[in-house]
Write a protein that binds this DNA or RNA. Structure first.
Lengths: 344, 344
DNA sequence: AGGGGGTTGGAGAGCGCTTTCCGAAGTGTG
DNA sequence: CACACTTCGGAAAGCGCTCTCCAACCCCCT
């Protein structure tokens, strides 16, 4: 198969009758090269079928043309099922889509890395410093994860999607989660719901915590000092379980805020199975405005999170940082919007 | 930030008082090294905070520890929306999940590459031959895509998910799509449906074509020589449009096979909006058994495609091929199963 | 005590590329 | 026509690592 050695720059140079250096200059479009040589070299490239060895190039330039998408593995390492869940979650796909939209036109590759153990974190940072990847986009981590600090300390270009747990001078893109949760609270109260519960995500993740805090704060403003709360893990199944739980403890519930659409979908299914009509008996507001919201019956009233835009912005931020190493960390916070559909 | 140069193997060797070669041997666990030196070297590694430069290593070993997931860009390059759709589709997530499950334990990274133009194909193959990635998993391509042949010709380890358009000696994992479509046909007929239509995927993709062929064949066996057919592109929206179209042309339809769940979801929504009850007036069978099937109301009767398992098998096949370059191309075909739920 | 076989560790040659440093040409001016 | 100045292309030094030789050494047997 690979009978012959791959053509190298040396071969091109020989074929073109110039030095390796000149060939390199032409191929990389560096100035200081006689225009006449241009075509000579390019012809040699085509004649030999030369493709640059990006590894070798990266080794010296310390630029790989690759961005790594870091996914926290900490919650997934014990129960395999969650791994599948995470990737199958529209959240992941929307982020990848948004990222690719920007990276593709910039000619940059995306690598995927799951990071859970301390050793993996060290290795990730090492790889980044070595130029194995030019930068990292880090998907919403548990607040306790030391990765953001490590990235900052290493001086590695990185952007978080979802704010860091501890304040750290690092780029990030986030949604005003508290505001979004407040929107949901306002809507449920305005609709006249009296007993309003919440199904949250994991409180250990900032996005989870912020939605809880925002919802509680807004509810308190409306005179509801106490909000029945059950936590899930952002999967539909956990939404179902949480709903059953909540229903058992507060059978009179007539309003429900669920911290993401997948769980909200589970909630709607469970509510209806329990004989409750949505929104007649229980009004449900979801979060994300993912494809799951439209799939539900009735379609979910939900808080829109423009994840694709956020991911694209993260990519842009990272690209800008790559161009200008002196760039100061900045954060972009998106405003959520309430999308009213059938469920509340 | 990166005040100091990163420690290199040279530094470790000096700290340990051995040669670079010996340090390398210890770190890579090569035999022929005095056990006493083991700890000396490892201590030096820890003391210096050494992390191997994988780029440099790959340059010489021609092994990168990376697998590239190739996604066809040909259909997406014109209309941006589809890009997002594709990644947000559970299909993509399930594949990534299945792949990661195997690759993670093997300590192998996953890179993502969209390939559309001839130049991108050439570059992809070049990168692979250069050892930028050890192998490729290629997601279901249009039948006309020349990539499988190029991969084979280059002698690059690769596995397709979804059979190649032209017979090519290459590894692939696929579902018995025709059988699956037949299952759907049998079920619809057995249920007593008289006028049965189909919403297909793009016929240009083998999986799309096979489901059409399988459905037609089975229907013909049941005496239905002609099957009303409208094509979609596997998105929910296209499922809605196709359903409206079909309904307009065949208002008496009472059975519908839809080539994936996302479109089936759209079909159910559209049917109900048109006043048809599912399954009362129209029985609907989907395909994939993705999360969308459970989200639908009623939950979708669907043909199960064990995509995670298929992807995992693809990864395993690739890994085996990496270990044994002489391995002959093989194919693994999974058998579909009909999952009966509420919609038919 | 001398030599054969087996281990062990070091020197050094690359892997394919970029890029600095220089010498050689080419250009214009006094 | 000589001189300073610019432009261009080549030689060669690495980037950090692996791995092939090969020299040195140890152990044991005769």
């Amino acid at each position: 198969m690979d009978a012959t050695r791959l053509p190298t720059l040396e071969d091109v140079a020989r074929a073109a009758g110039v030095s390796r250096a000149t060939a390199s200059r032409v191929i990389n479009g560096v100035r200081n090269v006689d225009p006449k040589l241009h075509s000579v070299v390019w012809d040699a490239v085509n004649a030999t079928g030369y493709v640059p060895n990006r590894l070798a190039r990266s080794l010296v330039t310390r630029r790989s043309g690759t961005i790594v998408l870091v996914v926290s593995d900490s919650e997934t390492h014990d129960d395999d099922p969650f791994l599948g869940r995470f990737f199958a979650d529209p959240y992941f796909g929307r982020v990848v889509g948004g990222l690719m939209k920007v990276l593709r036109v910039a000619g940059i590759q995306l690598a995927l890395q799951m990071v859970g153990t301390a050793e993996q974190r060290t290795r990730l940072v090492g790889d980044l410093r070595h130029g194995q990847a030019d930068g990292a986009v880090v998907l919403s981590l548990p607040a306790s994860d030391p990765l953001p600090g490590m990235l900052t300390d290493a001086g590695v270009p990185a952007v978080l999607i979802g704010r860091p747990g501890e304040p750290v001078p690092i780029n990030y893109v986030d949604l005003a989660n508290e505001t979004g949760a407040g929107l949901a609270a306002d809507h449920l109260v305005a609709r006249g719901a009296r007993t309003i519960g919440m199904i949250s995500g994991p409180p250990a993740v900032p996005a989870g915590a912020d939605r809880i805090a925002g919802f509680r704060r807004a509810m308190a403003r409306h005179g509801h000092g106490y909000v029945p709360l059950v936590s899930g893990n952002f999967t539909r199944e956990s939404g179902e379980a949480a709903t059953r739980d909540l229903l058992g403890r507060h059978p009179d519930i007539d309003g429900l805020f669920v911290a993401n659409d997948l769980m909200a979908l589970g909630a709607v299914i469970t509510l209806r199975a329990a004989g409750r009509r949505v929104p007649g008996d229980v009004a449900v507001v979801g979060f994300d405005d993912s494809s799951a919201a439209l799939a539900a019956d009735p379609p979910l009233t939900t808080v829109r999170q423009p994840l694709e835009d956020m991911a694209a912005e993260a990519a842009r931020l990272l690209l800008a940082r790559l161009d200008d190493a002196t760039m100061r960390p900045s954060s972009v916070i998106y405003e959520p919007a309430l999308i009213v559909r059938g469920s509340a």
